[in-house]
Amino acid sequence: MNDRDAREIKRLQWQCRRGMLELDLLLNHFLQHGYAELDSDARQAFERLLGMQDQILQDWLIGQAIPADAELTALIARIRAAIRTAP
């Protein structure tokens, strides 16, 4: 990871601090164990996702709703997979 990436991850880490424990766990875990592998489009999608309201994020990540945006849907699948497979 280069310095720019490291700075970016620190900035995003604070955006992953949310009002709900479930979101804290899923988003922080993905930031540490999945974000580095995303291409630039997917990284932009992750930023977009972090801009959503907590309750909407919760519905999407826990599986009670699906976003209309296909990029976000794909990203959510990766975040959900990461929490179960990464260390």
Partner: peptide, 9 residues
């Protein structure tokens, strides 16, 4: 944190 990310949510 951004205000609407407070734990009241």
């Amino acid at each position: 944190v951004f205000p609407t990310r407070s734990h009241t949510v």
